[in-house]
């Protein structure tokens, strides 16, 4: 009897241990020292990252007032009784605006972000492939050259494109000298310029995850597919794409999510037609000083972004676990 009982206890203990993730990796048992280490990063992020979002949500439920701060309080005390007034006007006005400005700019942002992601993927994949399959010495140099522009200032890079896309800029001059066009084409203040700017600035975010995925690819599979008579396109989709799936998704999310709220690039390169949601938020906040509406715009944007962020988070998590498992 007694042995049976102890066996059962071991089973129970094992079952509990298994519930903890990978018990072999849990090197320390949690001590006060661990909690002391967690304390600073955790509290910092709670105060300066989580709390702000609660405040944004709170302010989005108030209305604008000419006061300091310029919004109505949610909780008031009148005649000794606490009153909570929640205004949903900001959210309804986003959706029922007579001109449809907000809805249109959301759709426009989604369109620009989606197309930019596709362009980045189409341009970034060959670049990542070229990097991953070069000789190690060449690869290092190229890798640095691809990343270096992203270490210089974003505004400077956009400014550089403004100079060459101007009416009398380099691109128009070259095209005219070659006789391809007769008169300069308007490139600045168009959606085209916005796409060029976004692709130029976000390309490294796409190339890096693709590059690390392509470095791990088993290239003998491609040769095998060729030997078995597979056509190049089919080979690509049946060997490379499945093996680099996580890199493709991670890169796409890294471009799509920030591109959706991009402000600087459409502001400097885009015209009146590229009113993206980031610009709307900026205008409501800085020009109209309507803080509650700007908060409501931000919350709506967050709701749209929750799905892509969760996908990105899940992929990251999976990659991390793979790394641990590999160790």
């Amino acid at each position: 009897m007694s042995t049976g009982f102890s066996v059962n206890m071991t089973y129970i203990r094992r079952a509990f241990q298994r519930r903890r993730k990978e018990p072999s990796m849990a090197v320390h048992n949690n001590t006060w020292r661990d909690y002391a280490l967690i304390f600073l990063p955790y509290v910092w992020m709670l105060i300066f990252f989580l709390l702000p979002f609660l405040i944004i949500f709170k302010i989005s439920l108030s209305v604008t007032e000419i006061a300091i701060p310029p919004y109505s309080p949610l909780v008031t005390f009148e005649e000794g009784a606490m009153q909570i007034i929640l205004h949903l006007e900001n959210y309804t006005s986003i959706f029922t605006d007579p001109d449809g400005t907000y809805i249109r700019s959301y759709l426009k942002s989604l369109q620009v972000a989606a197309f930019s992601t596709v362009f980045c993927l189409l341009i970034g994949y060959p670049i990542a492939w070229a990097l991953a399959t070069s000789k190690p010495a060449v690869r290092n140099v190229l890798f640095m050259l691809v990343i270096m522009p992203s270490w210089t200032s974003l505004v400077v890079r956009i400014y550089a494109w403004m100079t060459i896309m101007k009416k009398d800029g380099l691109i128009n001059d070259v095209l005219m000298a070659l006789g391809i066009i007769d008169s300069p084409i308007q490139m600045l203040q168009t959606d085209f310029a916005v796409y060029v700017g976004i692709v130029y600035c976000y390309l490294p975010y796409m190339v890096l995850p693709l590059f690390s995925a392509l470095m791990k690819v088993d290239y003998s599979l491609i040769e095998a597919a060729y030997d078995l008579g597979c056509r190049p396109v089919k080979t690509f989709f049946s060997t490379l794409v499945p093996q680099t799936k996580n890199g493709i998704i991670a890169g796409s999310m890294l471009v799509f999510i920030p591109a959706l709220g991009e402000y600087v690039i459409p502001e400097l390169l885009g015209g009146k037609s590229s009113i993206l949601i980031g610009r709307i938020l900026w205008q409501e906040f800085f020009n109209n000083r309507d803080w509650p509406l700007a908060s409501a715009v931000a919350i709506t944007m967050l709701v749209i972004l929750i799905i892509p962020i969760m996908i990105f988070y899940k992929i990251e998590r999976r990659e991390q676990e793979k790394l641990y498992a590999g160790k």
């Binding site: 992020m45 709670l46 405040i55 991009e262 962020i309």
Partner: peptide, 25 residues
Amino acid sequence: FVLFMTAPMVLPEVITGLALLLLFV
């Protein structure tokens, strides 16, 4: 904790900026 440590990398800057300003106010 993992979410806090990764989210600022992907969130659009306008949201983070507005959130932090409202916090300071």
